[in-house]
Design a protein around this nucleic acid. Structure first.
Lengths: 342, 342
DNA sequence: TCACGCTTCTGCAACGTTGTAGACGGCGTT
DNA sequence: AACGCCGTCTACAACGTTGCAGAAGCGTGA
């Protein structure tokens, strides 16, 4: 049913190749011919067949975005920005959710669909340096997040150590005496986001002359509301419960707030809470959430930009880039009742 | 770099077609040959080239999911379920966000990428019956949501009228005397989700012998927290503000709650609030949100199933299906302080 | 006049895959 | 012994596209 170059060629009375040339903007075409071909194209509503084009040229105009979960608001918002940025370059985004499983991440990155996509942007959770180095030279790839910063692949991230440090300082300055952290993952290695945020937390505590009580660093398995809820309940059951909590993402923080409310305590009067990511919900929750707001638009722009550079064939001397994305500490009700900024 | 059938064939000492037959499970292959071919396949790490396959067979293993916004939690959760359901059938999902614009929805459905995808699942906002009928016979398509129920395309939806009716009844029974609704969209036609929910709201009010005050039906432009926030502020500024509000999705409800709290009122003591969709946030918000919970898993299953039936070529006598998905009214704190069920 | 170059256009081959048609032996039946 | 059938395998063409090489027509300068 869809028409091909051949159909257009027949209608315009030229060769298939000439139509191809018109479509691809080859300059040496007479005005008359170009006119006839373009007329035929629109009459037949011709659209190039992407599969055939990909088969011939190796380009599909499709890039993959691989994230652990797409229904986590942070990743959903990020995906939205990336789709926008990709669209501006005429690319379509294929979104792949890995569930954070290494095997799935390997596939996403090395590509069970590598024959369909021109490149991938991945936000890895469990994947290892070896997995990456195995494919980095053959498949255009940009990594998001702090994990695997130094394995020779283009990389976009927020400075987690600095951000965690800043938000911890904020809690201390606002009067937190026993500051806890929620979000360490026992299974993560030292490069992981969670490890870096713990590091920033420790740094701020030490700089302020506060002892770090290990039992106030609550571990989680996932990064969802129920994980934050459970962790906060454990913290509240301690003999010396915290009066301030740094959560490593907004969902953990929102779960923690829910647990605090269920314990008939108030936020921030009894426990101050901070998050990470600045998802939209953080601006509408009760109380509104103090959080670290990375510039997601800039993050998406940078990632797509780096990928574009790889796909279009970068000058060989270009080194893998490490892009640091700016962030802001947004202070809201969950740490300072009056300080609403949004 | 990736190996092709030809490489595998050379290595196994058989013809290209035999390798193709092995890959595709053609039965008449001797054990010895199959063994050699499979060995060669794994030694060369052969993967079929999807573009070539698509070119030859017309199948790509790719389906599109077209939603207005991917960072709206409802759509994100839905997308997640659909990706899971599609994965079980070996399909990959390409997620397309339309922003609710008609032109983009047309493209998504009729397919700027129709040459790449085998079919589409779309959740339309602005598209018209004419747009659909124009392409329904040539492109496998399943629609989500109530809009355009009767245009001869497979369709999966929740009974919005019944659900809106049920949640309104619940508010009346729990003591709401002035019940308002948030979520009508002036620009929507009578088939739209918002119109149907208004209809269910009116039905319940009338059945309970309550007058429907038109100024208590607050209109919105979008379905996000800020829209619910603004609408609720308008309602609270009325001389006879409502003491119960039916919101047409959870985000509107969460925005409304935020507005109520900002007005120094309590939920549900001063104003009871209900949502629609049962996004995860509704189970963790303060207060937890009473809402209509559609069975999203069933919805995704049904949609992918119907699409599969179309793609694999349905028996010609099969009529377009209209699938109604079950839902539950989940009562939580936002209408009954003690009634938490989740 | 002829060689040369430029513009415009064309035919052929190839990308990796699968459908069609058929080749080739071996086996059972007549 | 002849026949047909079945299991196994293969050759060829085609899907729609683009790179390559080159043809045809025309003008220019020697």
């Amino acid at each position: 049913m869809p028409s091909s170059l051949k159909d257009v060629a027949a209608r315009a009375g030229v060769s298939v190749k000439t139509v191809s040339n018109v479509v691809n903007g080859y300059p040496f075409i007479s005005v008359a011919t170009r006119g006839r071909v373009e007329a035929a194209i629109s009459e037949l509503n011709y659209r190039p067949n992407a599969s055939a084009r990909r088969l011939r040229t190796g380009r599909s105009g499709l890039i993959a975005l691989s994230v652990p979960e797409i229904d986590a608001p942070y990743f959903a918002e990020l995906a939205s920005h990336i789709v926008d940025a990709a669209e501006q370059r005429g690319w379509t985004v294929l979104i792949d959710k890995t569930g954070g499983e290494r095997s799935h991440e390997q596939l996403a990155v090395a590509g069970i669909r590598s024959d369909l996509i021109d490149g991938a942007i991945a936000s890895p959770l469990s994947i290892t340096t070896a997995d990456i180095t195995a494919i980095k030279d053959t498949h255009p790839l940009v990594l998001l997040g702090e994990k695997l910063m130094r394995c020779g692949v283009d990389h976009v991230a927020v400075d987690s150590v600095a951000a965690a440090c800043e938000v911890t300082e904020h809690l201390i300055e606002s009067g937190g005496t026993r500051v806890a952290a929620i979000g360490m993952r026992a299974e993560d290695d030292a490069e992981s986001t969670s490890a870096l945020r713990v590091q920033g937390f420790r740094k701020a505590m030490t700089a302020a002359g506060r002892p770090v009580h290990e039992h106030l660093i609550a571990t989680v398995h996932g990064y969802y509301r129920p994980d934050g809820y459970a962790a906060m309940r454990r913290l509240l059951a301690l003999p010396d419960p915290p009066d301030a909590v740094v959560c490593f993402n907004d969902l953990l923080a929102l779960g923690a707030i829910r647990a605090i409310h269920d314990a008939r305590l108030r936020v921030p009067a009894d426990v101050a809470v901070t998050g990470f990511d600045d998802i939209e919900e953080a601006r509408f929750s009760t109380p509104r959430l103090t959080t670290i707001a990375p510039d997601k638009g800039a993050l998406a722009e940078a990632a797509v930009d780096l990928l574009a550079r790889q796909i279009t064939g970068l000058p060989p001397e270009t080194k893998p880039q490490e892009v640091l994305i700016p962030y802001r500490l947004v202070v809201r009700q969950s740490t300072l009742p009056g300080a609403d900024t949004a």
